[in-house]
Design a protein around this nucleic acid. Structure first.
Lengths: 159, 159
DNA sequence: CTGAGTGCAAAGCGTTTGCATGTGC
DNA sequence: GCACATGCAAACGCTTTGCACTCAG
């Protein structure tokens, strides 16, 4: 954890950006809540616990900066809010998301599911892939159990 | 074309929605510009040519209705605007998109690239997939030729 | 010391909503 | 005729920006 914070600090320094307490607090929040998919507002509220005087605009500016530096990914699940997701260290590709339409929970998939598909797009369409976004919408395990007793069966038959 | 319009009209009728000139004009625009990925504003401007008195709010309401009826898909490429894409008739799945980061052009891929991936998500994660969104960001063929003479070579080596 | 960074409030922008009016069925 | 649909303008929510002030390097 501290290790990753140091890396990010170093990256900021390398790019001639100043290391302000606000920026450090924001990065700390992102590291602590890595599993979540926080909106700017979420981050703002959490950072305020550490640094009460911080402004929402600064959080936006910091998140934009971190996006430019490719330290976080800005993602959008179609609900009108941008969410910010720390990039996994050493990850060659973006992770994918499973968004539950029942409870709104978001799971992450680390596996590289798209290697073949990207090769196809590159060879058959002549499109150089730089980045991708893959999100599945559906029903998570927990909600299946909650709302529907025969979902297990459904799951096996589905598609 | 007329055939698809009739189908949509019938669908509206079946669901007890009124067939107003505004709704018909909006659907016509979507049919005519099927290949584009129009924003609500885009649709509004095009519909206004056919029905000058229409209001932007009506366009939004119509697009929302068509989304509910699964006649169009609301998509979001992360630029802060919702775009509306007519569903292909008889398509079992959503098409995917190639967004060029150079010129902003959007190509569509009809092939079902995700069958295997969805099966994996369903069996290994117990997540019932209802829908997906897949977008690749990168450089389209045209821009490759324009900005970079050795892109052809790059493309073959890439990844 | 100096310019990058900040907080605040105001503005921007896409989208939604309240309400009086209009119109398909 | 009547409920649904529309047009307009105001409201909304997220995000960006202008500006004077602050502080990291």
């Amino acid at each position: 954890m501290e290790h990753r914070l140091d890396r990010i600090k170093k990256e900021l320094h390398t790019q001639r950006y100043k290391l302000t307490p606000q920026r450090e607090a924001t990065v700390r929040v992102l590291l602590e809540r890595e599993e979540d998919h926080l909106s700017a507002e979420d981050v703002y509220l959490l950072v305020r616990d550490k640094a009460p005087e911080i402004g929402l605009a600064t959080v936006y500016r910091t998140l934009e900066l971190l996006t430019e530096l490719e330290i976080v990914d800005k993602i959008n699940f179609g609900d009108g809010v941008s969410r910010y997701d720390l990039r996994k260290e050493g990850a060659k590709h973006f992770h994918h998301h499973l968004v539950c339409t029942e409870c709104g929970s978001v799971e992450e998939i680390e596996d590289d599911l798209l290697e073949e598909v990207e090769n196809f797009v590159q060879s058959d369409w002549g499109f150089i892939v730089k980045d991708h976004r893959l999100t599945f919408h559906g029903i998570c395990k927990k909600c299946q159990d909650r709302i529907c007793s025969n979902c297990e069966a459904k799951r096996l038959v589905a598609r």
